[in-house]
Design a protein around this nucleic acid. Structure first.
Lengths: 232, 232
DNA sequence: CGATTGAATCGTACGCCGTACGAGTCATGC
DNA sequence: GCATGACTCGTACGGCGTACGATTCAATCG
């Protein structure tokens, strides 16, 4: 059915875990490394979008042959996985004491999340098609812990988390898709105006045009949190 | 930047609009038509997923040469666009009188929407990357009209609509992505269990495992609608 | 009636993609 | 000095989207 993602392993990762150093010592940094590959992949994705990333281009940018990548990485899918997860690292909010303002913390976490994905629009399109990496799971865990700490019962936790996650994902994906099609902002506006000509209510509310996306995101989030609050 | 989608036109659609009949008359139905192409593309997408659709395969299934498709369609992107929009047709709820139970209507529309996209998981992955087709816009318009009819002020309409849309999109995309990676349900469970080992709260809530997706969707939706209600 | 047209089909070919395969390089430890 | 194993990469294969031009065939017109 879908893509198989199970058995794939880079030759590198098949080795147990020994002997990382040796080559490391040479003067000018080793031309290839997983870190450099992932970082360059992110650069490329930022610059060219999801379809702009090809193994050959990636290798070119790294000054190596395309096939050299496959020592460090099992296949292109793994590059996508690593690039996505690498961008989603999260160091919590200032982290003061114990469970102060849970609502503020949740809002902060979710806005940070959204901000990242809007900064890297490809990530919003990629995420639904990739496995959950450690950073994504880490964020989910943190969200769960915060809500649980705020008193949400275990039974309600799933509803709470999925509601928030879904909302953020939807807002991010939608927004990113609008950004994507804005090759030329003015032309896009025109196109949308022409499109919404026969949709009077959409037209009247200027739904597709000058939205205050950030404000709308916050308001919807507040509605959800209002609904969630009685659960604690 | 992103893909250009502007100038593309099938040779067919460049012709004004005359002379549709002629060939129609031959005995065994004409081997190719936009309708057949789109319908077959949907079949293929249902069966093989987003990446399973290729022009050659599509043509094979239609018993024609690959290049013949390009008479009816400008390029592969257009096939995606048409397939997506074709699946999203909507005939409203029983449509009784004027603005009865607006909340019930909204819930019905959104659950129908979600149901479709879960029935065709590829559509959830496609939608964020495609332009808004007439059926999608039609659904948005209907949603807007219902909310406006329920008394939501124009100023609040955008927030209301985007909140709901984002939530539905997120829920759909997330759910579809879980379905996607379930080549083998049992193996997937195992993998998720192993993954969540180091995420105690996720583990405790069994967030990734036996969720009542439908119920959770309804509850989150109710929270949103509760929040929206005061606007009317 | 034959000639012309234009709708529709399709074979071939090009440039790109991911990656299998195996040969090459080179530092290390015997 | 030789074997080993980490790492790099050239070549090649099959598949992709699609540009281009030849082909077929029914309708139209003189």
């Amino acid at each position: 059915m879908a893509a198989k993602r199970s058995g794939a392993q880079s030759k590198r990762s098949q080795r147990k875990g020994l002997s990382l150093r040796s080559v490391q010592e040479s003067r000018s940094e080793p031309p290839l490394s997983l870190e450099r590959i992932v970082a360059t992949a992110v650069e490329l994705l930022d610059a060219q979008g999801v379809d702009g990333l090809t193994m050959r281009r990636l290798a070119d940018r790294l000054g190596s042959g395309a096939m050299s990548l496959y020592w460090h990485v099992a296949n292109k899918e793994e590059v996508y996985d690593l690039a996505l997860d690498s961008v989603l690292e999260y160091r919590g909010p200032p982290q003061i004491a114990e469970s102060r303002d849970w609502r503020g913390e949740v809002v902060h976490m979710l806005e940070d999340w959204r901000a990242i994905m809007l900064r890297h629009p490809w990530s919003a399109l990629l995420l639904p098609r990739r496995a959950l990496g450690p950073n994504i799971l880490g964020r989910l865990e943190l969200l769960s812990k915060t809500l649980a700490g705020a008193g949400v019962a275990d039974a309600d936790l799933n509803v709470a988390i999925w509601s928030l996650w879904n909302y953020v994902m939807g807002a991010t994906v939608t927004r990113a898709s609008f950004d994507l099609s804005d090759d030329d902002r003015a032309a896009a506006q025109q196109r949308l105006t022409r499109l919404s000509e026969h949709y009077p209510t959409i037209e009247r509310s200027r739904l597709l045009l000058d939205n205050d996306w950030d404000g709308a995101f916050r308001k919807g989030l507040d509605f959800l949190l209002d609904g969630l609050a009685p659960m604690q």
